[in-house]
Amino acid sequence: MATMIDRRGFIGGAAGLAAVATISDARAATDPLAAMIVVNALGGLDDPNQHGEGLVPGLSARVLREAHQSGVTAINVTLGYVSGPKEPFEYSVREIAQTDALVRLHDRDLLKILSAADIRRAKRDNRIGLIYGFQNGAMMGGDASRVDIFADLGVRIFQLTYNPANQLGDGSMAPENRGLTPFGREVIARLNARRVMVDLSHSGERTCLEAARVSTQPISINHTGCRAVTDLPRNKTDAELRLVAERGGFVGIYFMPFLDISGHAHAQDVVAHIDHAVNICGEDHVGIGTDGTVTQIDDLKVYESALAKEIAERRAAGISAAGERPDTYPFVIDLRGPDQFRKLARLLGEKGYSTTRIEKILGQNFLRYAETVWGA
C-alpha cells in the first residue's frame, strides 16, 4: 500500500522520524480512527459485487484498498463449514489452507492473528489482521480432539452452532431450545484447554446460558442484537447478555436486518442496540461484529437479484432466520462501505459517548477479551 511505502521512505534518522510523527499527527487530526484499534468481531473481507462460492476471502485489489480505507485493524472472518452437502471436516481444513495461502500472497496487507499481540502488531504495521473463526461446530463430527487440530491450524474463534441444532447444541431457530448436548460440553472443555474463544452467536437461549456457566473461560456473542429492543430469535435476551458480561465475556452488535422488526435497519438502530447492550453489560463488554464487509456495493438492484436467490437457497436448506427475507438487506442501508466505522463513531459521539467509550466499543473491549482468552 502507498501508505506503507511512504512511511518506509521517511525512515532514516531523526529528521525522518520527525516527518513521520508530523504526518501521523495530521492524519489523527482529520481521521478519528487513525489512533484507534478497530476490531470487527465478525465480518468479511470480500466483494459483495461478486457472488462466488465459499467463504474464503476474495482478496481483490479493491477489497484490500477499501479495507485499509475503512480503518479496520482486525476482522474475525468465517472459514470452514456452515451448511450444505460438503463434508464438514475436510472442507474446513481446505478453507484454512486456502486462506493461509492468500495471507502469504498478500503479506504486506494481511496478518494472520494468533494472539492479542498480533492485533497490536497489525495496527502498528498498517496491515489487516485476519482472525480465523468458525460459525458451526459440525466439523467436530463426534471427536472433540479435533479442537486440537483446528487450534494448531490457527482457528481462534469457535461458534458452537448455526441457526439449526447440531451435535453440540440448539441454534436460535431450533424450536425445542434444548441447550447443550453432553458432546457440546466436552467440546467447550477442550476449547477452554486450548484457549480458543467460545462464541454463542446464533445459539438458542438455553445453549448460550449453559455454555456461559460451564465454560471456565469467558465466552462471547460476537454478532448479535438485543431482543429487548427487537424481539427476534437471532437477538439475545438480557439474561444472556448479562451473564456473558458478568463472567468477563464480550458482546458484539451486528449491522443486520434483525435490529428492526421491519427488517429494514438503519444506523440509529445500531446505536440503539449498542446503547441497550452497554446498559445491560457495562461499557467494558460491548463491541461490534457487523456480519458484513466494508467493500461498497456498486449497484443495489443487481445485488438484490443475487440476494433473492441466496435467501431462497437458505430457506430451502433450513438455515435461515426469522426476519431475513428477500426484501431485507444483510446490512444496514446507511451504515455500509469503507466509512461505516467512522460514521458509527460520529453517531455514538452525538449520543453523548466519550472518546474513551467509543474506543472501547470499536476495538479495545475485544482486545481485552482476547488477552483474557488467548493471552497477551
Score class of each variant (00 low, 15 high):
residue 13 G to C: 10
residue 15 A to P: 13
residue 23 I to R: 14
residue 23 I to F: 15
residue 25 D to P: 10
residue 26 A to I: 02
residue 27 R to S: 05
residue 34 A to Q: 06
residue 37 I to Y: 08
residue 44 G to L: 13
residue 44 G to M: 15
residue 46 D to W: 15
residue 53 E to F: 01
residue 56 V to P: 03
residue 59 L to P: 00
residue 60 S to K: 01
residue 61 A to F: 08
residue 63 V to G: 11
residue 75 I to F: 10
residue 77 V to E: 10
residue 80 G to P: 08
residue 85 P to Y: 01
residue 93 V to R: 15
residue 99 T to D: 15
residue 100 D to K: 12
residue 107 D to N: 13
residue 108 R to T: 11
residue 113 I to D: 05
residue 116 A to L: 07
residue 118 D to A: 05
residue 124 R to D: 09
residue 128 I to R: 01
residue 129 G to F: 07
residue 138 A to G: 00
residue 141 G to V: 01
residue 142 G to R: 00
residue 143 D to C: 01
residue 146 R to N: 06
residue 146 R to M: 08
residue 148 D to Q: 07
residue 149 I to V: 14
residue 160 L to I: 12
residue 161 T to R: 02
residue 161 T to L: 03
residue 167 Q to N: 10
residue 176 E to N: 13
residue 178 R to N: 12
residue 179 G to C: 09
residue 184 G to A: 14
residue 192 N to I: 13
residue 198 V to L: 08
residue 201 S to G: 04
residue 213 R to V: 12
residue 214 V to K: 00
residue 214 V to Y: 04
residue 221 I to P: 15
residue 224 T to Y: 10
residue 225 G to M: 12
residue 230 T to E: 04
residue 232 L to Q: 07
residue 233 P to E: 05
residue 237 T to C: 06
residue 238 D to W: 11
residue 240 E to A: 12
residue 241 L to V: 14
residue 242 R to N: 13
residue 243 L to P: 11
residue 252 G to H: 03
residue 263 G to V: 02
residue 270 V to R: 10
residue 272 A to Y: 07
residue 280 I to V: 15
residue 286 V to N: 01
residue 295 T to C: 13
residue 297 I to A: 02
residue 298 D to S: 06
residue 301 K to C: 02
residue 307 L to R: 10
residue 309 K to G: 11
residue 310 E to V: 14
residue 311 I to A: 11
residue 314 R to D: 03
residue 316 A to N: 08
residue 318 G to E: 04
residue 324 E to D: 14
residue 329 Y to D: 04
residue 332 V to F: 07
residue 332 V to E: 07
residue 341 F to T: 02
residue 344 L to Y: 06
residue 348 L to F: 07
residue 349 G to F: 07
residue 350 E to W: 14
residue 355 T to W: 05
residue 358 I to Y: 02
residue 364 Q to L: 11
residue 370 A to S: 10
residue 373 V to A: 05
residue 374 W to C: 03
residue 374 W to S: 06
